[in-house]
Each structure stands twice: as C-alpha cells, then as structure tokens.
Design a protein around this nucleic acid. Structure first.
Lengths: 236, 236
DNA sequence: CTGGTCTCTGGCACTTAGTGCCGATATTTG
DNA sequence: CAAATATCGGCACTAAGTGCCAGAGACCAG
C-alpha cells in the first residue's frame, strides 16, 4: 500500500478524515455499540491494531477532527494580536466554523451524541476543554495567575453562547442565517464580557467601553436618555 | 451475610457509601486502572456480578454519591418556592455542600480525577448535567420553551462560580472560610443573573428591557446619547 | 550491493469491563 | 404453606484496549 511522508506534531493526515467518515457511516447505519473496531478497520482497509494506534479508542475516532480543531484554536489564541476578549470570541467563531464547515461529520455525530450518554459526556468534555483554554488565555493576558472569577464567568458565558447558537444549527442545519445569529449573539456576550473585565485589558488605551442599561419597558424614552446621560458621566 | 430491606427508586443504600469508600481506598493505593472490579467486589464482600448490577460501571462507583446528589438537587428545585434565580443559587449551594460535607470521598476523588482524563471527563459531565438542569429550571419558571441565551448564560455563570470556589477548596480543604467565600461569590453572580434576567421573573407583566451599548471610549457623550436614542426608538 | 538502524504495520495473545443467562435463594403476597 | 417475584452469584461470552514480536520498507554508512 502507498505510504506518504507524514508524522509532524499532531497534524492532520487526510487519511484521518476518511476513517472518520467511514466510522460515522457505520455508526449511523448499524448503531454505535453494534459497530466493532474490527469492522471499522475492515471498512477502511487498515488492521485493527493500526486503527487503535492512530486513534486511541473508538470514541476518539468520532472526535478526531474535534481534537485537531482544538489544537488549532489554542495555537490561534497564542498568536492572536487582538485583545483577550476579542481573541476568545474569535476563537469561539473558529470552533463554530469547525462545526458548520463539516456538517457531514458534525450533524450525524450530533445525533449519535444525543443518543449515547458516553458520547455526550465526551462532547461535553470537549467544550470544557475550550472553556478551560479560554479561561487560561484571559487570565494570562490580563496578568493574573489563576483565572479569576470574572475570567471564568466570561469564558463560561462565551461557551454558553456558542453552544446556544450551535445547538440551534445542529437541530436544523438547513435553516440559514446562522452566521448572523452567531455574530449577534457573540456581540451580546462580548458586551457582557467587556463590562465584567473592564479595566483589566492588557494595553487598554483606546479600549471600548460598555454600557448595560436595564429599564422597565414602560419607561419614557426621555427619562431613559436622562438616566443614560447620568450613567456615562465621567466617573470619579 | 446480613440483609437489609431495601430497593426504593434510586435511594441511598448506606451500603453504597461503604462500597464507594472501599473503591476510593483501592484506587488511591493501587491506582485506578490497576484496580479491577473483581478486587473491589472481593474487598466489599459482594460478587463481581452484583457489583456491576448496582453500579453500572467502574466509574459509576466513584460518582455514585454524586448521582444521588444530583437527583436530590433536581427534586429540591422542583419543590422550591423561591424565585428561579434564588432557587438555582440555593441548588448550587446544595451541590457545594455535597462536596465539602464528604471530603473523605471528594478530596481523594479530586486527585484521581486530575490524574485520569477519563475520570476528568466524567466529572465535567456531572457539572454539565447540573448546568442543563439549572437552564431547564430557569426556562420553565420564566415561561420559556427552550432556554434562552440569557438563561443559559446565567446557568453557566452560576456553575462557573460554584466551580471556582470549589476548586479552591479542593486544592486546600484545610483552609477555612469556604462558606464565606462561597456566599460572597454567589452574591456576585446573583447580581449578574438578576440584571440579565430582570423582568423575566415569574409573572412578568411590566417586563424590563436591556440595552447594551459598546462604544469607543473616546466618543463624545452627545454622540453616544444620539446613538442610544436611535437604538431605543420604537422598533417596527 | 550489503549490513545496520529506525519506523510503521499487522498478527497474536492476553487482560478486563461489561452483559446475557440460569439456577439458587430470599422476600413478598395470597 | 404455596406461589409469584425480585435479588444474588456463578458461568460463559463479546469486545475494547494493550504488550509483544516479527516482517516490510526507508534511510544511511561503508
């Protein structure tokens, strides 16, 4: 069989994608538990042993692309010149892109994940990894040691917002305007994040400010504007 | 061997606790993977088969008490007369109590969890279950169908805050003032939750609205106010 | 071309989690 | 007491995951 010079540090193989697609097909047709590693090996032309070598477990086949994406996202954050919050939001966008850009994997996987608690746990673990990575990034870039409460809440909020939009898309991938929804949603958490972390931004000279106003829906507009004017009055 | 009338619907057994403690001891002494179910069975005086019947898997032994706690928390929320946000915060307090009230299980488990990715995933999955339960509770009590973005962000924030304090305690269970820290932290997310969900509380007649504005810090106040005025103009 | 090392691969055997089945033994019910 | 029922323990079985080894191909030095 043909060989191809590869090895690198956790880089995609191309062959990986084929295996994942084959596995997804088998899982969907015959059921996750009913499909054995031997069958996957046969379907992909590799030996059972080599299959276990490349993917450490049956679950790992299903989430192989996800793992690669995670590596990519972490590297992206390390290299990003944006502010910490912007970087994390962009990273979330990258993850979202990873899903909607590969529906032939992520959509059937979503069905499998919903049906099998073990797989669900695994999916959840992935998002937890992202959340932890976001927290670490925010903490480092704002000069903290361990992530502070604010940082962890912001990371959790970004993840929650991401998942909120993602689940909507996964339930109905055909429906359009996903990116509009994503952008709009992220803008909202971005504002929240800004208000929670205000002043902690790295070199926050020309940083943006955020105003959050909560008001009864019946209030007069002029009254509202007066209150806003008070709120944006110079602090000290 | 002595028998004791039991069965109930997922109720504690008392015997359960003994098995968990024995398993924790074995895992700690010999390592998690090195300890087999047969050994746990022998150590607890039951047969391997019965062990698998009571706890569905090896992991489940370690998290058995956690599962029971989850059931308790869900029932608590269903019966709580408090406002949704208060209920969720109290529920988080219950979970926290579940940890600090059983350090002989949770502390060594923390060490095991940190060392074994599989167990870590399982722990993460538990917190995700709580977060989902919180979201559902908030959504139901505020008359929504699916949890809204705000609801999910609040649930995520409460969980993040809970875990923030919990991890601190797990790292150093001896250090006191845990409950003060917990209370103070929860107060802060409670305020955040209140502002995010304000107006959606049960019986939300005079609902409030939220305005979030993000603006460059250098912008003129008059210009900002003009933009805000535009933003709050009646929609359609 | 030849011998040596290094790596990837596949085959084989083995351990162990987890399950189905069945007979024995309480436990409850009439 | 007898019958129905649930629980328990033993046995056998499937399949995930691992260690070991031997063979095939790549690369290098002589």
């Amino acid at each position: 069989m043909d060989s191809m010079g590869e090895q690198g540090a956790g880089q995609v193989k191309g062959e990986t994608r084929a295996v994942v697609l084959a596995a997804v097909r088998l899982f969907t047709e015959a059921g996750y538990e009913a499909t054995t590693m031997a069958e996957i090996a046969e379907a992909t032309g590799m030996s059972r042993r080599s299959l276990f070598r490349r993917f450490r477990s049956k679950e790992d086949i299903l989430f192989a692309e996800h793992d690669e994406l995670f590596e990519t996202v972490v590297r992206y954050m390390e290299a990003s010149p944006e502010t910490p919050v912007d970087t994390v939001v962009s990273a979330a966008r990258l993850v979202f892109q990873g899903y909607v850009g590969a529906p032939e994997i992520t959509v059937p996987r979503y069905r499998l994940v919903r049906a099998h608690p073990r797989l669900r746990d695994r999916e959840v673990a992935m998002t937890a990894r992202y959340q932890a990575a976001f927290s670490r990034h925010l903490a480092r870039r704002t000069g903290e040691g361990r992530p502070s409460l604010e940082v962890e809440v912001v990371a959790a909020a970004v993840i929650a917002a991401h998942n909120h939009v993602l689940r909507g898309w996964l339930r109905d991938p055909a429906e359009g305007a996903v990116w509009e929804r994503f952008g709009e949603t992220m803008d909202r958490v971005h504002a929240l994040a800004g208000s929670l972390l205000e002043g902690a931004e790295a070199g926050n000279e020309g940083a943006e400010r955020v105003l959050v106003a909560v008001y009864p829906s019946g209030v007069e507009r002029t009254e509202l504007l007066r209150r806003v004017a008070d709120a944006v009055a110079p602090p000290s």
